[in-house]
């Protein structure tokens, strides 16, 4: 087998040597860079911080009377006859527009039951004859820890839904054989004096980090 032989089979020119060695070193360097993986590595994504634990809170927004008793809260607000006199209903005062004037002792109460003023009257619900109870229009007298029937006396369909579990919060066990279903009362979510639920801060949405297209398009996204 005859191999191709260059004409000058003797010494290669020193210049050729130099070039060959240069190429060799270049290739070796390139190989080293490959091994060290100096480029082509995907940059690490910044770490998304975990969500604030306040958004994981499952406790209801408000405490019912029964919750406050159970939690041994300060119940002095419910001790009506510490200030009021028994057997003497406190009078209700109105301003020039026939709006109720909240006395300064009850300044923490903000009236806002409905879009009209007709229901912003204390004795629609509170019992003027016995201030530590509530009264229903049909004559029933209810304790503070049993307020849902009072709400239900006006909000019938909602009360029906609540009784059947279609309205209101539940927690615990869906399977009553394995544990108790806890159902919250109206006042655990609604302030009876202003039942409309106020707006809230939403938890952060999907993080923009992983939607490069949206960022490029300038879509406003959560940065936290």
């Amino acid at each position: 087998m005859e191999r191709f032989q260059p004409d000058n089979t003797g010494e290669p020119a020193p210049r050729t040597h130099l070039v060959l060695v240069g190429i060799f070193i270049g290739l070796l360097g390139l190989a080293a860079m490959f091994v060290a993986d100096l480029w082509g590595r995907v940059p690490a994504q910044p770490v998304i911080p975990p969500v604030d634990v306040k958004f994981l809170e499952t406790t209801p927004w408000r405490q019912s009377y029964a919750d406050m008793v159970a939690a041994k809260e300060d119940m002095s607000d419910f001790d009506c006859y510490a200030c009021h006199e028994k057997g003497k209903p406190p009078p209700i005062r109105y301003d020039a527009n026939q709006k109720i004037i909240i006395p300064k002792e009850h300044a923490n109460i903000k009236m806002g039951h409905g879009n009209h003023d007709r229901n912003n009257l204390c004795y629609n619900c509170h019992n003027e004859a016995n201030l530590v109870t509530l009264q229903v229009r049909d004559g029933r007298e209810l304790k503070f820890d049993n307020s849902p029937p009072l709400c239900g006396s006006c909000h019938g369909p909602t009360y029906f839904d609540w009784e059947n579990g279609a309205h209101g919060r539940t927690s615990g066990y869906w399977n009553t054989k394995q544990g108790a279903t806890k159902r919250l009362q109206c006042v655990n979510c609604h302030n009876p004096h202003a039942p409309k639920i106020p707006t809230r801060e939403p938890a952060p949405g999907p993080h923009s980090l992983h939607d490069a297209a949206a960022v490029a398009a300038g879509v406003k996204t959560n940065s936290h």
């Binding site: 309205h167 919060r169 539940t170 615990g172 054989k177 394995q178 979510c189």
Partner: peptide, 21 residues
């Protein structure tokens, strides 16, 4: 499967989520 409600239901502050058999 242990008889409890799902986590998303328990945390819902307005009771919009309902689950059962």
């Amino acid at each position: 499967r242990a008889g409890r409600y799902p986590a998303c239901l328990e945390v819902c502050p307005v009771g919009a989520r309902k689950f059962g058999n």
